[in-house]
């Protein structure tokens, strides 16, 4: 379990994390979402004591991280794929990490097998692809068989088979009663993996709920209609709480009305419809809606002054 209280981090005059409160529960996969620069990585770094909070506190498995007698057995962490000396082999990296906690070499071989690194374990990490680096990072996180796992973008650079493997692994670890905190920019993947979502935006928690609740609260279901008479249909359906968006020539997306309502009214007005489909909202839609005002580095937004992204 991870508990953050008024957790704050300033870098100079910039506030990366702004008095956030959240609890990551054991037995679930918790997704950690937010635009670049929202404070996800900084928060994760503070959990494992790499960055010192400017204010507030965060405890993991009941204590501040540094007070644990066996930190690697409490928390396994993948911060980024480059937390390894490039001149060392994967095997020796894991052996050196394991030695700090007197974890036997048999466990090193176990995590190498588990992550599928057997064929490259004796090679120097400098030559690893991004995906192999991620697998090594996950292997290192699993070394101590920890009660809590913190994985920052674990599927970044993995092939589809690897993405699926991470999904199964994290679900299984959570099912064993462990706490799993996972960040990713792949919304579809997150929707499949996570049970619970915490969304950060500009250093604040802007949503903290189950995946279903997040989608239900933030995104609207829409109806896609294909018809040669879009203008006539739009006029017919126009009312204050109905939004109509032109998708392409002859296709509109309507929110605020059900499939039945649209179909019935079109029939009554004798407007022919070629398609009438209910489109259910996705986590991505909900995420976009939640973070639309929180994106710090929006594409093509000339008015906002640029700030260096905090990726430390």
């Amino acid at each position: 379990m991870i508990q953050a209280q008024s957790l704050t981090k300033h870098y100079g005059r910039k506030t990366a994390v702004d008095a956030v409160d959240f609890t990551v529960q054991p037995g679930k996969v918790t997704g950690f979402l937010g635009p670049n620069g929202a404070g996800k990585s900084t928060t994760m770094r503070m959990i494992v004591g790499l960055d010192r909070p400017s204010a507030g506190s965060v405890i993991v498995n009941g204590k501040p991280y540094h007070e644990h007698k066996a930190p690697l057995r409490e928390v396994g962490v993948l911060l980024d794929a480059k937390a390894v000396h490039t001149g060392r082999s994967a095997y020796n990296h894991l052996r050196a990490m394991a030695a700090t906690h007197s974890i036997p070499t048999s466990r090193v071989h176990e995590v190498i097998n588990l992550t599928g690194l057997e064929s490259v374990a004796r090679k120097r990490v400098g030559g690893f692809s991004l995906g192999m680096g991620q697998r090594l990072g996950i292997a290192a996180a699993l070394l101590g068989d920890p009660a809590t796992l913190i994985l920052d973008e674990p599927v970044n650079g993995l092939d589809p088979e690897g993405v699926q493997w991470v999904r199964k692994l994290t679900k299984q670890l959570a099912a064993e009663g462990r706490t799993v905190l996972l960040s990713s920019h792949l919304m579809s993947e997150m929707a499949l993996t996570a049970d619970h979502i915490i969304v950060l935006g500009r250093g604040r928690v802007i949503a903290d709920a189950s995946v279903a609740d997040i989608i239900a609260s933030a995104a609207q279901n829409t109806v896609r209609v294909r018809t040669p008479h879009t203008a006539a249909l739009a006029t017919l359906l126009a009312q204050p709480d109905v939004t109509i968006i032109n998708i392409e020539q002859g296709v509109i997306e309507i929110s605020g009305l059900t499939v039945n309502e649209i179909g019935d009214r079109a029939a009554a007005a004798q407007i022919s419809l070629h398609e009438l489909t209910a489109v259910s909202a996705s986590l991505e839609d909900a995420y976009m809606k939640l973070t639309q005002n929180e994106v710090e580095y929006r594409t093509g937004d000339a008015s906002s002054h640029t700030e260096a992204e905090v990726t430390r």
């Binding site: 007698k69 000396h85 700090t100 068989d145």
Partner: peptide, 29 residues
């Protein structure tokens, strides 16, 4: 499985000898 909500870690922790061994491995690898 979701109802099981505690996973208690077991095994050896940090030690001086462990750290010395780790740094020796790091140096010679």
């Amino acid at each position: 499985s979701a109802a099981r909500t505690s996973f208690v870690p077991t095994g050896s922790g940090l030690s001086i000898t462990g750290l010395l061994r780790s740094e020796t491995i790091k140096l010679w690898s």
